[in-house]
Amino acid sequence: MSHGADTAELASAPSGPFHEATAAENNKLGIWVWLASDCALFAALIATYLTLHNSVQHAPTAAQLFDLRLTATATFVLLLSSMSMGIGVEALQRNDVPGMRRWLWLTVALGAVFVGMQAFEFTTYWHHGLTLSASDFGASFYTLVGFHGLHVSFGVAWILSLLIFSYRRPITAADAWRFEAASLYWYFVDVVWVVIFTVVYLMGKVG
């Protein structure tokens, strides 16, 4: 009752010398696993928001508060930062370190502007009475959008640390993955924002 092969038939050697996985390859896979896992993180936050966003109690509603012009501007800022990040990493590929630095500084600046706009937005809403404990719409909104804001802030810190690194040490080919990893994370944060922009702001405005 034997199917498949006897163990002996399976024995065969791989062709060519063995290439050990490099730190770069491991790190890149690691980053992707982390990003996949982060999807589930935001999924839980969005699920919370979807469950509770109609629970407004006596606090202001999404339709009353949201200013789409502000949010659309923030969206474009983040979108531009993705582009500058991409061009920066590409400059590094051409060994153009000063060019890379210029674009990364721009990315950091755009990221900081985004975080600043969010801080402004949050304080505005807060003054209009949408506090954490005022309603579950407020609680789930601040938690979801704030979590994304924390992601952006962490990304800004990460890119900043890369910039500092680039001034203190010559960048070798073996370091390039550090920049690629940060860029993947940065694009991912932008991807999440597209979801939040659609689900929270656009859908919230139409109710």
Binding site: S37, D38, A40, L41, A43
Partner: peptide
């Protein structure tokens, strides 16, 4: 990798 994040959020 996929199960812990919802718990973290919880």
């Amino acid at each position: 990798v996929f199960a812990f994040p919802p718990f973290t959020i919880n």
